[in-house]
Design a protein around this nucleic acid. Structure first.
Length: 940
DNA sequence: ATAGTCACG
DNA sequence: GACGTACGTGACTATA
């Protein structure tokens, strides 16, 4: 049991929010039951794992000296006297959780920790009391909870730790969440309210608005007193009308930190548990794995080899923050460069160093609309400069007009030799953007590295690759947020309007961080054995893709406008028809209303609810109803199709056309997917309709310039070819070698039908199966997709495995590899990290397994495509006027002067078909089909 | 902001 | 034995 130990400045007090933990564990963990009698004990198991890890598996400086678990007691507290609706929305706890409440208290005692609760108070109040007491003694406190109500307690010495996500919550994180320092959190909550606890707050005021108001007025009371002064009418009236509600809310959310506790803080001193009591308890629960671990830990002493449990958190405290390398950022050393002399000085420093981080600031996120506002260079940690070139205003500018700046063209001319100097490596973060801007200035930056892509080669699937994420992950440092210097909302300043001091602080830091990321991440490429992936596949993508984005694709606005009104007409007709059948108007765009009409009002069968309790009205459901003879579902589906086409394509696309060139410029993301594919956005040009006749019409609007043609070149069945190679499927490989229709071949093998007698229907089923295999097949999924029942689908899969015996071995080996290493690899060595592959929850694990099966196939195809793309500019240089415009995963689109299309097709085909060479040899041929036409529709 | 739906490979 | 499922994306609309 615990022993009395005085709390001092050296103590580390750990307080567990027991009630909150078991609720979360109950929902997050699989529903285990005790073997002996079927008693549900999943939450208790999670709780015990957590306790065990906490007490035994910690590094010395983090080991708790004092430890207790705090629970809620009863449901009536002093807060109910203040506001009778407090937590009135809470239902009864789940039936399976109720018996686990007393067990967690037993568990706490079995581990030798005090279990603390007090009538009339919530666990939060007791935690607040103890935390403040400990802090007063100078001790360090860690609260195990993710409850935001506790965030008001956070200080330099009091941190929270989310035990499920293993995320440390300090003052910085609280500020990220609420936008104010921890001491203002209660004011935020008083204004914003909380639907979970039924705290009313001020209706219509959310966290964001509350933070803004508090920022301006300081605290809640001042705000309420001066509410008359608020400019926005809505906010003013809401606050005036609900001031009392806000005051009550504040009382409700304020934790009571002076509870007359029964157990003193000093009594929580950590001791070893009584082994007999502990083992008795574990045995009784039937926790065999945990029993073994505890035994091992006690037997082998401190230096045991315990393995971290999948679901148990690794315990990290603020003290471990210093594990990050070199994180001192000193903004005072950044220089704002205002003369050509100083610029020359920085350029020569870059030349001497041989490596320089480069970052551009512009007035827009769209690199084509963007005007250059400034350039940053970083040459060493903390040694960075900002060169303003296009600032138009700002608060540190006296009088009116723009500040003194170096002439933009002179600065670019001075920078150009260094940027193009082979002996100086330029480092950028998401460099595609900057390269695109430089290209438009006639500067071809080389050589360069992109820290985003280095991170992508190293950690795809583990963390994001944006600069802020990388800085936080690797350095524990959050760069100055753009919002901090530019504000938010419609009054947000663009970069040219920001004062030079703020601009320098923000911009130079970006370059500084980028250079440090490069120093930190680049050497990891070779240790992780992904140097080839980065250098041979990814590194040249930024300038190649920047070029494609700059080119854009020509779109016929008039054609889109015509289609738009055609779709409108169709929609109007269908809408009238739908309202007629439903005998009343409703919003066809509202899934909620559709569900209510079909299943509540009309009382149709076959309704299913989503996990949020709404009726499902997706295609599957509506098609089912339609097959049963209902007319309304078909009408809805048709309306939806036209609505989609109109809103997403004909209308949205018109708005994206650059009026000067009549061209549309998408943005390709090079590090967005877990498999190596690109993605496209603003607008997404990788999902332009093709599958239906009406949708295909959109493609008529994607055209070539007069005197030019579009060429579309597609890899044919590349994923199935790669599957045949990787899983070693001789029959399939032979079929590809012979140029046989692969889906027909599959059908013939599976259903014993000679190729000559193949029917479209049988072939269609085989095609669905082939796709299913690539996706990590399940009988359910296949059944849903082919329309056969689940038993038949299961038979299909069985037959497939028999006819193509390599498949099973491939799948098993891939799953095993994922489980063993946490990632799978493409043929080129790109690692795809798979989260959840060791998850105890069978559903999540199965999902991860399907990802693992699919990733090497999809990823290898993506690698081949990337290689083809980076080789393409050199390959098509001999075709005058040919330009690469778009990539759609297995397709590239080009524009070429009429008359040269045949040469281009020949070159493109060869480049694409040989893109994997010489890195790998394939036992299947790679085939590319290409066609030229006036528009994208006919080029297929 | 999130959920539902649907467009693509 | 039950449970939910094809892999990878992005955009729009309704709704909270």
């Amino acid at each position: 049991m615990s022993q009395p130990v005085p709390v001092t400045a050296k103590s580390h007090v750990v307080l567990v929010d027991g009630s909150a933990y078991i609720f979360r564990a109950f929902h997050a963990l699989p529903p285990l039951t005790r073997k002996s009698d079927g008693l549900p004990i999943g939450a208790v198991a999670g709780f015990c794992n957590m306790l065990f890890k906490m007490l035994k598996d910690q590094k010395d400086e983090n080991r708790p000296t004092h430890f207790a678990v705090i629970f809620d007691k009863g449901s009536y507290t002093f807060r109910n006297d203040i506001y009778d609706q407090y937590k009135a929305n809470r239902g009864e706890p789940p039936e399976d959780l109720v018996p686990q409440f007393p067990l967690t208290r037993d568990a706490t005692r079995a581990f030798g920790a005090p279990s603390i609760e007090l009538e009339g108070f919530e666990a939060d109040d007791l935690i607040a009391t103890y935390a403040r007491q400990a802090e007063a003694q100078g001790a360090r406190v860690t609260i195990l909870s993710s409850d935001k109500d506790l965030m008001q307690l956070v200080t330099d010495r009091i941190a929270m730790l989310d035990p499920m996500k293993n995320k440390l919550i300090g003052p910085k994180e609280v500020e990220e969440k609420f936008g104010v320092t921890p001491d203002k959190v209660i004011d935020i909550q008083a204004l914003a309210g909380d639907s979970v606890d039924n705290i009313p707050g001020v209706p219509g005021i959310g966290v964001k608005t509350a933070a803004l108001l508090l920022d301006e007025y300081g605290d809640l009371e001042t705000l309420l007193e001066r509410a008359e002064e608020i400019k926005q009418k809505g906010r003013r009236e809401k606050l005036l009308a609900n001031a009392e509600l806000a005051r009550i809310s504040k009382q409700l959310v304020t934790l009571k930190d002076d509870v007359a506790v029964e157990v003193e803080l000093d009594e929580m001193g950590v001791t070893d548990p009584d082994v007999d009591v502990l083992f008795d308890f574990l045995e009784e629960m039937g926790f065999r794995t945990l029993t073994a671990r505890v035994r091992q830990a006690l037997g082998e002493g401190e230096s045991d080899g315990l393995r971290a449990d999948d679901t148990a958190p690794e315990f990290v405290s603020p003290a471990t923050r210093d594990r990050y390398p070199n994180v001192t950022f000193d903004h005072t050393r950044y220089e704002c460069v205002r003369s050509e002399d100083r610029l020359a000085h920085w350029i020569s420093r870059a030349q001497e160093a041989g490596v320089v981080a480069v970052d551009l600031e512009t007035d827009s996120l769209d690199s084509r609309a963007a005007n250059l506002v400034g350039v940053c260079l970083a040459v060493e940690d903390n040694e960075a400069c900002y060169v303003p070139l296009g600032h138009t205003g700002g608060e540190d500018m006296f009088g009116e007009g723009a500040p003194d700046q170096i002439d933009r063209d002179a600065a670019l001319a001075a920078l150009k030799p260094m940027l193009e100097n082979e002996a100086v490596l330029k480092v950028g973060q998401n460099f595609k953007y900057d390269l695109g801007v430089f290209q438009r200035q006639g500067i071809d930056v080389a050589p360069y590295d992109d820290t985003m892509l280095i991170s992508y080669a190293l950690h795809n699937g583990i963390n994001g690759h944006g600069m802020d994420t990388l800085s936080e992950t690797h350095f524990g440092h959050s760069p100055v947020p753009f919002k901090e210097i530019a504000g938010t909302g419609k009054n947000q300043k663009t970069f040219d309007q920001i004062g030079l001091e703020d601009a320098t602080r923000y911009a130079a830091e970006d370059a500084d961080v980028t250079l440090r990321l490069w120093k930190y991440l680049k050497p990891k490429l070779s240790t992780a054995q992904v140097t080839r992936v980065y250098e041979d596949i990814d590194r040249d993508m930024p300038h190649v893709v920047a070029r494609m984005e700059n080119e854009g694709v020509k779109v016929d606005r008039a054609e889109l406008a015509r289609l738009s009104s055609y779709f409108s007409q169709k929609m109007a007709g269908l809408e009238a028809e739908a309202h007629d059948i439903a005998e009343g108007p409703f919003n066809l765009g509202s899934p909620k209303q559709i569900g209510e009409i079909l299943f509540d009002k009309m009382g149709l069968d076959g309704g299913k609810k989503t996990k949020t309790g709404a009726w499902q009205t997706g295609v599957d459901i509506l098609e089912d109803l339609s097959d049963k003879g209902e007319t309304l579902p078909r009408v809805i589906l048709n309306w939806r199709q036209f609505s989609k086409l109109k809103s997403t394509y004909t209308d949205a696309l018109q708005a994206q056309i650059n009026p000067e060139t009549d061209r549309v410029h998408t943005s390709f993301s090079l590090a967005a997917t877990t498999t190596g594919r690109l993605s496209s956005s603003d607008p997404n040009l990788q999902n332009i309709p093709i599958r239906t006749e009406e949708g295909r019409k959109i493609r008529d609007a994607f055209i070539a310039e007069p005197g030019h043609l579009l060429v579309a070149a597609d890899y044919s069945q590349i994923e199935l070819r790669l599957l045949a190679h990787m899983a070693d499927l001789p029959t399939m490989k032979q079929a590809f070698a012979d140029g046989i229709d692969i889906h027909a071949l599959t059908a013939s093998e599976m259903f014993d039908v000679p190729l000559a007698e193949m029917t479209p229907d049988v072939r269609r089923q085989a095609k669905a199966i082939n796709f299913g295999i690539i996706y990590g097949i399940s009988a359910f999924g296949l059944a849903k997709n082919t329309g056969v029942d689940r038993g038949t689908a299961a038979d299909f899969i069985k037959t497939y495995f028999e006819k193509f015996p390599g498949i099973r071995a491939y799948m098993d080996a891939t799953k095993a590899e994922a489980k063993e290493r946490g990632y799978v690899s493409t043929l080129f060595g790109r690692k795809c990290h798979i989260g959840g592959i060791r998850d105890r929850n069978p559903q999540r694990r199965a999902f991860a397994e399907r990802q693992a099966i699919n990733a090497p196939i999809q990823g290898t195809a993506a690698d081949i495509m990337r290689r083809a793309m980076t080789r393409m500019p050199a390959a098509i240089r001999n075709v005058d006027g040919a330009r690469m415009l778009l990539q759609v995963h297995d397709e590239l689109v080009f524009e070429v002067p009429e008359g040269r299309e045949e040469t281009l097709i020949e070159t493109v085909k060869a480049t694409m078909e040989q893109a994997h060479e010489p890195a790998i040899a394939l036992s299947v041929p790679i085939d590319v089909e290409a066609q030229a036409a006036k528009n994208w529709n006919e080029a297929h």
